[in-house]
Design a protein around this nucleic acid. Sequence first.
DNA 1: TTGTACGCGTTATCAT
DNA 2: ATGATAACGCGTACAA
Lengths: 349, 349
Amino acid sequence: MYSTRVHSIGKGGKTIATRDDVAKLAGVSGATVSRVFNCPESVSEASRNIVLKAANELNYHPNLIAQNFAKGITGNIGIILPYIPNVHIFSVYYFSELLSGIGQVTSEKGFNIILFFHDLNLRYPNDYTKYFKGQRVDGCILLGTLRNDPGLIDLKKSGYRFCLVNNYIKDSGIDFADVDNVKGSYEAVKYLVEKGHKNIAFINGPSNYTNSIDRYQGYCMALDEFKIPLRKSFILEGNYGKKSGYIASKKLLDLNPVPSALFASNDRMAAGVIMGLREKGISIPEDMAVVGYDDSDIATIVEPNLTTVKIPFFELGKMCAARFLDTLSRKSGGFELKIEPELIVRQST
Amino acid sequence: MYSTRVHSIGKGGKTIATRDDVAKLAGVSGATVSRVFNCPESVSEASRNIVLKAANELNYHPNLIAQNFAKGITGNIGIILPYIPNVHIFSVYYFSELLSGIGQVTSEKGFNIILFFHDLNLRYPNDYTKYFKGQRVDGCILLGTLRNDPGLIDLKKSGYRFCLVNNYIKDSGIDFADVDNVKGSYEAVKYLVEKGHKNIAFINGPSNYTNSIDRYQGYCMALDEFKIPLRKSFILEGNYGKKSGYIASKKLLDLNPVPSALFASNDRMAAGVIMGLREKGISIPEDMAVVGYDDSDIATIVEPNLTTVKIPFFELGKMCAARFLDTLSRKSGGFELKIEPELIVRQST
DNA sequence: TTGTACGCGTTATCAT
DNA sequence: ATGATAACGCGTACAA
């Protein structure tokens, strides 16, 4: 009888040695082979050497899938990314940085990262449970989720293990790691006010991101503190893309009064604004001061370099992953992390 | 007797239903349950309905790990990324784009992507076989590998399934998807020559990348074609970072003769050069024409916008993944893909 | 069409 | 210190 399974066939037809192959060659039981690889101190030196020699001879390596399968874990952490066809999510600064940070921590702890591309174009509410149902991950970290997404509440109810980065839902009990965007925004606007600006326009991102809401709140707080009236007409909305900043810049000069400063809720939009203003002959910062947000690589590429609010996304990713892995192994309870941003002053103000 | 295994415990202590749980509830065998999920047409409608009802009641979902384990496949494609502590690899334009492209194709085909961070600081030669030995992936795509890395030859000999992106090794039999960088570079320099430039400096990336060698070759080819002598002093080396371009720009004006044009082998270095030249009061393109490479997002952010060679990395990632998955399923033989870049003319020339 | 039974490569328990 | 052996959840050849 002959098995048609492909299991032990790999590497161009060569057979892959299993634990029991090694056991047979070494003249010991399979259990002893396992012990040599898992708790070598519980095996006599003699047996250990025989087993290691046999393992080496057969080029044996424990099958990680089988190992995890037997242990009832996967060793995989899922990362759920928003996916919109032809939008290249990795090119967005903060996703890139976050992923690098998460990847560093998880790989140090021996976990694999599995990427899931979540199609946001599907009908509401988002079903995130599908990434957990096949039990191929021990838990997931969700990036780029929307504010008050009911799918997140459903996911929480389902009992699966997950956390959010760069978003949070108050009183939901959902773990998260985020930036204190209220404070970041407040500091930026406060700085402009202290430089003597009273007419400060604000171009924000879409309101379906918690980020945007928080940044708006910080803007209001700073104005309020200095008794500067809030003008609705000064609030513009972009989509965090450069082009939307460019478009917004065209409206800026038609405002009455014309603002002397602009706060953009990310650097890309700030770059678009600067491009648009330059076309109109406005010089920065003399005619208009501009403050960005993120301190992405763009901030030191645009001319003049951007004054901006620095968000340490890489660190955020690391912290989030570390806490999440702790939580998974039940070493700790839930977590709600907020890290502090920092204002970086450059030539655009 | 009571099992301490965590297998069926998840979701906060609730039990996860298995195939045999469903079978018992439905009053059929486990095999029938499997059939309902794998080849429903081979099951009578009556049984099928009973099984589906039971499965629904128990909230049953086949365990993907166990499924693949039984089938002897993993369903995972590994992506090996160069990892250097505190260097944020995802922030590099071409990694981001490639990953997005690969991710799109693999997820469409039902594969998971597992990211591996390969520490380049370990001693030579690179051992890539470790990512395969645990048999947790069906194959790997390697990004950012170095020219003639002996570790790649070793890996090929080992018989594991893999391919390269953005690199290749001649006559090695290693599958790859790359850009025709000789041609891209040739077109860029030819364009400068045709604009009347004779003194064209070149800032290249490190020579341990095949990319760099190819771009150098294209530069030489174009000069040769127009009988322009190659000046060694015109060849500068950077590290593909903005800062290295900035540093190189300082040497540019000391050359004799002073070049009237510069070709940089990526946009980041071109941006650095422009920044440096601006400090010296050199205006672009009047005093010095600058051409970049990649057409990354930076190209339209720097002022003036960069004339550059557009590399469709996203498409490259898609093509590579598609062919690689084909190869894995033995639908096709090896592949050697080279895609054509395109010159984009903007204001910097 | 359906059920039985074995195998996948481990871990972990229990005897010895 | 070591060996048998039962899980783990599923696919599937074979028999019925």
